[in-house]
Design a protein around this nucleic acid. Structure first.
Lengths: 214, 214, 214, 214
DNA sequence: CATGAATGAGTGTTCATTCAT
DNA sequence: AATGAATGAACACTCATTCAT
């Protein structure tokens, strides 16, 4: 009775709908980063977005999970855009690692709220089903890619022998800690932090005796 | 670290009162670790503790902040007891560092709930006033001590030149990430993780050319 | 029963408009029967009808009352068409009664959703103003006709003396109960039910000593 | 740690708690009967009960289902008390039937809201899972008992041959319809209705030729 | 003729906290 | 020392309806 030539149940979002969603997502990021995930109620987000009612958010998002998932997706889009290009320019694994760390930390200046918001979300939903927020698939893939990069570096003789899983864990732990610190410490200097972390992981990964000046 | 005999308005607690507080704190740790900070309501904690009403918790603690502060204090007491002795046995800074990391990670097996709970708390209250939960003073002091240790190591010629602040940041980021991972990943092996992280930070801190096998 | 050419403010409906209304009414019947009156929101009805928004329903109907009224009207039209002819063929009052009961129960197989939907509506709006849904006039008229039929039968000596009001009440109570049961009980057999109910009310109405086999 | 010598998780309700529950149940019956199940929100019930907030209801009942279940249970308790004694005094099945009908209809005068409320509930939850409200078990048992009574009467030669299932269905349909009518029709006379319905079902069940005066 | 964006009141439920007993 | 009753604000979410386009 209703001709649907689209192959799948594709939602076909209107321009104005997309704009509203983006506006709400932006407000959500702001509120989560500023007040924490636990305090990020629809009421606060609506207020931040200048909307008159929370019903508006429910109208544009199927539920809170849907909104949070969109925040995460927005963050991932952003990260991919900023990092992929720069890293592909590097030829050595050590170079890629240094570039990733410094570029990632540099982003803290540009999008301080985004990273913080996602960090809040990741922490807060640990105990609940993380699939709901679309976290697991993206994260797991991202981590596995990084592990593989470390393995490549080891095969190429650039890196010493270590457990790539643990190295990825340490790397992300350090970056997350820096993200949290940046939000709290007014003296935080992202340039210094990026350089120092890059040095740290260069030293932690390179083969014995290989120093950066020979 | 906490002057017990200070002339301040120190409430003299009866034995039974202390026992009740301990019981509630233990229940809170369990619930926070298992269900997340966001879901750790007085109702859930009371149920876990086998208490019939939440009023009991409010009776023994001045408020939620007070309870959380006690959880953190309990954790700090625990960490101090377990780590101080072992580390003091070491003579070199590198040795102390390795001991700290492995002992700290090993504790994940012994007290998985405690660490997870505190991790949840630290993440969740970042946006709110952390002083309220008694986090800031302890953490700041602990971090400054570790920074000073790294500086000692640098002065003694054991460690390369790096920013001790960032090294502490990376170290704790890695350990926190490991804590979170341990709670989620059934394949997590604390022995491997401890050794690998110790290797990682040994390599990251030692002077160029100084390797353990040449 | 409803003067179509009355000089009242009768809205001239276009063909397409009527089609849309019919489509929505059909969807409403489906949803009310399947999910209950309480769950029959415009959103659910629009979805069932394949419409993208609830605004469409509000556009074609002045309000929820209007839609419900149309559902009831559709049901009454249907009942009249199916029953009138068959009953007029009967000459005795007892025959008419039997025919009415069996034909009415038989309709449960043909239009299960319609009857159930109206039953839901009647139950749900009892406490509110039933006039709004166009229930009262039709029902009252229908009941008074049936009462009069019973009186005719009594005058003709076919039926024993009883209060026709109560007999109508019992008859409709039984039929409604059967309607509800049919929707729930997979073992419900409309043929058996129709025959048994007809026997029941034949026995309940006939003069003492008058039996069909002596 | 908490000695519990009770064999089961028996809730052990306080006197005041029971009183509050009863008060809320009474208010719920009032509201459901007066405004319909669909309009019986916690807000309306709280207002009716003179409570200041809906949270109070949630405090005493685990959820809306729990409250509704209690309403039904209260009704069943009431019915059992009023009917059992009277019916047991009768020796013939026909006598029991007559007593049941008249006593049941007479209760409409005494507890008009109770019956109406339960009728509303039964209608409203048909589409949802009726088990949740504790309806199914009680009803099914009650119906099966009545069916068995009819079968006894048939074996004893008091009743004609008919399908007991359908007779129970008709009986309850008629009584329910009377309940609804009583709430709406100011001219409703329960004495007349009771007597007439008793006559009706006596005629509908007795063996051919057996009249009440020989 | 039709749509989808917007509204604001209303839903049941949970929350930390207070207080009389 | 302890209890359980009570509170009222906050929560995410749904509702029928309006209206500009």
């Amino acid at each position: 009775m209703q001709a649907k030539n689209s192959p799948d149940k594709q939602k076909e979002r209107t321009f104005i709908e997309s704009a509203r969603r983006a506006q709400i997502v932006a407000a959500a990021i702001e509120v989560i980063a500023d007040q924490g995930y636990g305090n990020a109620s629809f009421a606060k987000i609506a207020k931040q977005a200048g909307l008159s009612s929370t019903g508006m958010i429910s109208y544009h998002f199927k539920g809170k999970d849907d909104l949070i998932r969109e925040v995460v997706a927005e963050f991932m889009r952003l990260t991919a855009v900023h990092l992929t290009g720069k890293m592909d320019a590097e030829t050595t694994m050590a170079g890629r690692l240094r570039t990733y760390i410094t570029a990632r930390i540099a982003m803290l200046d540009e999008y301080p709220k985004h990273f913080l918001a996602v960090l809040e979300i990741v922490s807060a939903v640990r105990a609940e089903d993380p699939e709901l927020r679309g976290l697991t698939p993206g994260m797991a893939y991202f981590f596995s890619v990084q592990e593989e990069r470390f393995r490549e570096g080891q095969r190429a003789g650039e890196f010493r022998e270590f457990d790539p899983k643990i190295m990825v864990l340490a790397l992300h732990g350090a970056i997350n800690e820096a993200t949290a610190r940046a939000a709290v410490d007014p003296d935080f200097d992202s340039a210094v932090c990026g350089r120092e972390l890059a040095d740290l992981f260069e030293a932690a990964t390179r083969k014995d005796g290989m120093s950066h000046d020979n």
